[in-house]
Design a protein around this nucleic acid. Structure first.
Lengths: 205, 205
DNA sequence: GGTGGTACTTAACGGCGTTTACTGACGGTC
DNA sequence: GACCGTCAGTAAACGCCGTTAAGTACCACC
């Protein structure tokens, strides 16, 4: 955030405008001129607060990761680790289906720019939470003792991202076209169950 | 394909140029002017063969799906259905890692346009193959008898897409940044094993 | 009342996808 | 051999885009 002018409110408004436009028109539909129109300033004003379009979108994505993490946290209320894992997976999918434009911007849009170390750390918060839930599950004896929590968190994360991504893009090949949320949730159940089951203590030697 | 002019070779060359540019510069880096430069014609000539950029990319993607299907087919030589399933998953991942630009264009780029029914059918060929392998596995007794092959194929497909997608984008959160192929292949093993195992006959009542 | 800085705008640049109007070559017909 | 379509390809332009350079209006302060 360049933020030379002393108007912190405006920087916030620009991000909000960008976020709403991403949702309305998708990552490909957002332009600096549209953002400027929405806040009632000229396009060049945005460059007083953000170095360029990529930096503006980076900041917008940073805020979206916070909303996303909050959503996941609120959903994971279950008593057991496997249950919290399933709740997390379904909450992840729900957030993606409800914020398709932002989801695509966060997880599919181009390659990562020169974002700061701390921003990268913040973006990984929900992944760390998943890993912690799995670790807790190992401690509780719900998952087998040799389970590597980082690998397992990656696997869960990767599976549920794939489901969300294909559902949003209309490329769920068993049901091409715009995905029926009920079908997608069914897939989410099978995926989360299959992974959680394969990690459970009793199933492996 | 509009294809008014009687130069079928040129339509083919345009698609080849587009495909090579997608790989060199990614889906966001391809422009009609660059494609024209590469084939040695003016940009407007492309519009004699394709309605617009979206249709050109649609045709390019159609051809890429054929290469992709061939790659998967060649890899699935195993004797048992679970083995062919694992081979297919790893071949899928390999193709994505080796053709990152095209993979993103095929599976993440915007929403589907007005492509024909038969093109959609052709694009689903590899998914149907996966479903057939699972069906064969059920017949052979390797997978449990009540298993729904369409749901299972979706689940496998979704998981391996998620892995490929996150690996290509540098967003594998356990290992952020450009993904180490060895690590990604490890994740692929755990994912494919977890799913195949959860479907095996002996493991479920 | 001049001075300097701050917050913002106007105008422009080059590049994009796409369209309109054109050029030149070719084949048939009288 | 002169005329006339048709056909393949092009040049120029339009309205977008991200971004930059130059300018303007306003304010506090001496």
């Amino acid at each position: 955030m360049a933020a030379r002018p002393a108007n912190p409110r405006l920087a916030h408004d620009i991000i909000e405008a960008a976020a709403s436009l991403v949702e309305e028109r998708g990552p490909e539909g957002i332009t600096m001129r549209l953002v400027a129109d929405r806040i009632g300033y000229s396009p060049t004003t945005i460059y007083l607060y953000f170095k360029n379009k990529e930096h503006l979108l980076d900041e917008t994505v940073n805020r979206a990761y916070d909303w996303f993490a909050e959503h996941l946290e609120r959903a994971q209320t279950g008593a057991s680790a496997p249950e919290r894992l399933r709740q997390g997976a379904h909450a992840y999918l729900d957030w993606g289906l409800q914020n398709p434009g932002m989801y695509r911007l966060m997880f599919e849009w181009g390659y990562l720019g020169d974002i700061s170390e701390e921003a990268i750390f913040a973006r990984r918060a929900s992944w760390r939470r998943t890993r912690n839930v799995i670790e807790r599950g190992v401690e509780e004896g719900a998952f087998r003792s040799g389970l590597d929590s980082a690998t397992a968190a990656d696997t869960m994360w990767v599976g549920i991202h794939g489901l969300t991504s294909l559902a949003l893009s209309g490329r769920m090949f068993g049901n091409p076209g715009v995905a029926d949320p009920a079908v997608v949730h069914g897939r989410s159940h099978q995926l989360a169950d299959a992974l959680a089951d394969s990690w459970e203590a009793a199933w492996r030697p």
